[in-house]
């Protein structure tokens, strides 16, 4: 239902957006609210062009965007690798599972910014601590999903493959990986959401670059239109990345129920 609406936008939705924008414009130009509280949509577009050309806070918009994207890519990719490998080991060793489950259960309950304050003590306030925080944020859902996925593979499937002579890497590649991949990809989507949230949090609190820093800095100087621009860009990043992961899901595992 939701998926269909993404491609064919219903008339009511268009009307809703248009009405909202008109109302926004009317309220903003009525003088009830100060310019810094709610800038007109047209002002936001003008300011976007200005920021796109001149940058903000000493960095161009593109640079800020790329700094955030690089942090995210570094944390996410290492988190996925560690999560999948660790999840595979935990799923296959009953003792490792019993030893590590309580620790993972505890760590997953700590808010990312609290983890960041520990990481800052260990690694300083540089990039490492932020990237490791993103790594942890991405790793835990991927790891949990991998463990779940491997544990719920039907035993007949593995035994059947074995009796047909498949073993070792072939078994891993064609049976275990292919059976677990749909769930792992779902875990990656969830992990992306967590580490993206953690990225914005870390950049807001403890950085002097990136989109999270920019949105917070702009609000301190009451540059409300820049705040709106950043929110739209951050939302666009999140939307595009999630859409890409969804596409990956349908391409890689077309047989799995689309989640």
């Amino acid at each position: 239902m939701r998926d269909k609406s993404r491609f064919a936008i219903p008339l009511r939705s268009v009307l809703s957006l248009v009405t909202g924008m008109v109302l926004w414009h009317l309220v903003a130009s009525s003088g009830w609210v100060a310019e810094f509280e709610l800038p007109r949509p047209s002002v936001i577009v003008e300011d976007f062009l200005y920021v796109a050309v001149n940058g903000y806070g000493g960095a161009s918009l593109w640079e800020s965007l790329m700094i955030s994207a690089e942090r995210l890519a570094a944390g996410l990719s290492s988190g996925i690798i560690i999560g999948v490998v660790g999840g595979y080991c935990i799923a296959n060793s009953r003792i490792a599972s019993a030893l590590l489950d309580p620790i993972i259960d505890f760590v997953r309950c700590i808010p990312p910014l609290a983890i960041l304050s520990l990481l800052v003590m260990w690694f300083g306030i540089g990039e490492e601590s932020k990237i490791i925080m993103l790594l942890i944020g991405a790793m835990i859902p991927v790891l949990l999903a991998t463990v779940q996925a491997i544990r719920t593979i039907r035993r007949e499937r593995i035994e059947g493959a074995r009796s047909l002579g498949l073993r070792g890497l072939g078994l891993l590649r064609y049976v275990i990986l292919m059976s677990a991949l749909p769930d792992i990809l779902t875990g990656i989507r969830i992990g992306f959401g967590y580490s993206f949230g953690a990225l914005v949090a870390a950049e807001t609190i403890a950085a002097s670059s990136g989109m999270g820093w920019m949105v917070w800095n702009a609000s301190m100087y009451l540059q409300t239109s820049v705040v709106f621009i950043c929110i739209v860009i951050i939302g666009g990043m999140g939307f595009l990345a999630d859409a890409a992961l969804q596409t990956l899901h349908t391409r890689l595992v077309p047989w799995a129920r689309h989640v």
Binding site: E37, G197, T204, M211, G212, W216, S219, V227, G238, D242
Partner: peptide, 16 residues
Amino acid sequence: LYRPVPSLAYLGLLVI
């Protein structure tokens, strides 16, 4: 529109 944005990004607006 609102969903893909991490909640911390709204902090600036909320403060204003």
